[in-house]
């Protein structure tokens, strides 16, 4: 092989690099539609949200468009507000408990439905019905069921000898009530994705393990759970993001009350911006951005986790 003079600038590009460049172009070709889509449709609203949080908006200046730039003043107002700490705690509890229960129940149901029996496909589809209902309907139904005086839940409690609980009207129980409703609404999401993920695990693995004498629990813990890790990770992350944004259910059931006992960042943001007769858009956007930042932090954690999975 002749050596090529190092000074030669017209040296041929090594074949490997050319191949990789073509690969890159091809990959971005597949990604182009989504990238354009993201740029056009998400950039403007996100920019508007940041802009709203950096200015001092009154109703008048929102309409006329002449709000003064005030830097991080809105964030200061939000952090100093007495509602901030309760909202933070409630958001953490609401989100943590929601995804814990939704994931566990969804996984249990997915594993259960993986077995073949009569009606399994139909019943699995029926589990999605909660998702079909408009939120005003499901949240209202739960409100009616949990009504202190005429709700079926308190009637049932009475039949078993327990006293009535003020589910929606007492500060102690309001968060639990919206939590129950939210878990109910979120189980189908987890069920569908985890079930889909379970389908990618070949039956042959289970057969081999059964032949080796593994019990059902061992099969789950040694085969199902580890192989389900990438799908579980994305399910938990998406569950987290969507639960952080939940406000319809809480708003319709308790409006974040009484006395902020079921207020999360999402409901607080909505209340500041759209839930009063006198909107304060700046603080509302500031709370919304705090939510986005929280979610982004978990997003970074997820990407780290994904990298580790790929490396192994």
């Amino acid at each position: 092989m002749t050596t090529i003079a190092p000074r030669a600038t017209t040296a041929a590009v090594p074949a490997g690099r050319r191949r990789r460049n073509l690969d890159q172009w091809a990959a971005w070709g597949f990604l182009l539609p989504v990238t354009v889509y993201l740029a056009v449709f998400y950039a403007y609203p996100l920019f508007r949200n940041i802009d709203l949080s950096l200015r001092n908006y009154t109703v008048r200046s929102f309409v006329q468009g002449d709000a003064p730039f005030t830097g991080l003043a809105n964030y200061g107002t939000v952090l100093g507000d007495p509602t901030f700490l309760p909202a933070l705690v409630h958001t953490a509890v609401f989100t943590g408990a929601s995804i814990a229960f939704q994931y566990t129940v969804g996984l249990a149901l997915a594993v259960f439905f993986r077995q073949r029996f009569r009606l399994s496909a139909t019943l699995r589809a029926m589990f999605l019905v909660p998702w079909l209902l408009p939120l005003i309907v499901s949240a209202s139904t739960w409100s009616w069921m949990l009504n202190s005086d005429s709700g079926i839940v308190n009637t049932a409690l009475g039949l078993v000898g327990l006293g009535p609980v003020n589910w929606l009207t007492s500060p102690q129980w309001s968060l639990v009530s919206v939590l129950i409703a939210n878990i109910w609404i979120g189980i189908p999401f987890n069920l569908v994705i985890l079930y889909s993920g379970l389908q990618t695990i070949p039956d042959s693995l289970y057969e081999a393990a059964a032949l080796d004498g593994a019990s059902a629990w061992q099969r789950f813990w040694r085969i199902t759970f580890p192989l389900l890790r990438p799908v579980s990770a994305i399910t938990l992350l998406l569950g987290l993001i969507y639960t952080l944004k939940v406000f319809d259910v809480i708003w319709i059931m308790t409006r974040g009350g009484p006395t902020d006992s079921s207020t999360t960042f999402a409901t607080w943001s909505y209340r500041l911006g759209f839930g009063t007769l006198l909107p304060s858009f700046g603080p509302a956007a500031a709370v919304g951005n705090l939510l986005v930042v929280t979610a982004l932090v978990f997003g970074l954690v997820y990407i780290r986790f994904q990298r580790k999975l790929e490396a192994s």
């Binding site: 990604l31 989504v34 990238t35 993201l38 998400y42 609203p45 996100l46 508007r48 949200n49 992350l237 998406l238 993001i241 969507y242 952080l244 944004k245 999402a266 943001s269 909505y270 911006g273 759209f274 956007a285 919304g288 939510l291 986005v292 979610a295 982004l296 997003g299 970074l300 997820y302 990407i303 994904q306």
Partner: peptide
Amino acid sequence: LNFVLLAAQMVPGII
């Protein structure tokens, strides 16, 4: 892109 996709889902619907 992964990051942007995640961030895109965090924007509240009303915004």
